[in-house]
């Protein structure tokens, strides 16, 4: 069932692009149609949908077993609570990854014989980033499942946080920047720092900007997409020159501070895996079943 959804999710755009040539509008002007067009098409679908799927897969993992009592049977066997949590994480991650993988493989099967050129590097990096993204949200849901008493609460908490990230987080950075600017008299550059940094702490934004980076080939260009004022960000904050080309804004001669670099953003994304698992483990380890 999940595999089917993911085939539809990932392979359908490819099929559409192939047969109806819709993909052309996602291709960069003048360039030939490659799988990058497919990635552009799939990103806005995968970014909001995959977390929801991963949460559905993970939220009940431990909380429901606790509620129903099968946890007592598991923990009567020679397993510690930590091992149980680790096992659930591995198992549920696999459940998330199998349909994602099947989706990508189907896409490849559809695209291989077509005239769309496969840009292997960006396609595989996109697949890898998407898998990591799915695992991050699975871990997030499992962490909450381990910490909370009922599956219902785990679902409400994980979906609630997800909706918050999806709907409100993008405004949080800008809003916080404005607030500090109005009341704490911070400069425009500091305001943009706040905005960009806070935005990147969302796993959804982190994933999106990493995929943009794969497509754009430049971390700076993809980070600029996250700020409300690309010109000031480029020229005042990063010390570059903003050139608007046909392909979009380009910031030349700029240096990206390490906290916005690729490694840092991957780190922010992985924080959403590590923190829920560690916190979930801590609560689970110390609670009465």
């Amino acid at each position: 069932m999940l595999s089917f959804i993911f085939i539809v999710l990932f392979a359908l755009p490819a099929v559409l692009g192939l047969y109806f040539n819709i993909g052309q509008q996602f291709a960069e002007a003048g360039a030939s149609l490659t799988t990058d067009a497919y990635v552009r098409f799939a990103l806005p679908i995968a970014a909001p949908l995959l977390p929801a799927v991963a949460i559905v897969i993970g939220y009940a993992a431990i909380a429901r077993e606790g509620e129903r009592g099968s946890l007592k049977i598991l923990l009567s066997l020679p397993y510690t609570r930590g091992e149980l949590l680790a096992g659930k994480f591995v198992g549920r991650s696999a459940i998330t990854l199998i349909p994602v993988t099947v989706g990508f493989l189907t896409t490849l099967l559809v695209l291989l014989p077509s005239e769309i050129e496969i840009a292997w590097e960006s396609f595989l990096l996109f697949a890898l980033a998407t898998m990591a993204y799915g695992v991050v949200f699975t871990a997030f849901a499992i962490g909450l499942s381990a910490a909370l008493k009922t599956a219902r609460r785990a679902m409400a908490a994980s979906l609630g946080i997800y909706v918050y990230l999806q709907v409100f987080w993008s405004n949080l950075g800008a809003g916080l920047g404005n607030l500090l600017s109005d009341h704490a008299n911070i400069g425009e550059v500091t305001q943009l720092h706040v905005e960009l940094f806070v935005s990147l702490l969302s796993p959804i934004a982190a994933y999106r900007t990493l995929v943009q980076e794969i497509l754009q080939g430049s971390p700076i260009r993809s980070r600029l997409l996250l700020t409300s004022n690309p010109q000031v960000t480029c020229e005042e904050m990063l010390g570059g020159t903003l050139e608007v080309t046909q392909a979009g804004a380009e910031c030349t001669n700029a240096a990206l501070p390490p906290q916005y670099g690729t490694v840092a953003v991957i780190g922010y994304l992985l924080l959403w895996l590590v923190v829920p698992l560690v916190a979930g483990y801590y609560v689970f380890e110390n609670k009465d079943l």
Partner: peptide
């Protein structure tokens, strides 16, 4: 050492549920 205890103990708990 709950794991060492569980390795040598058979348990029929109360309020369990089978799969």
């Amino acid at each position: 050492e709950p794991k060492r205890i569980r390795a040598r103990t058979g348990v029929l708990p109360e309020g369990y549920d089978v799969y």
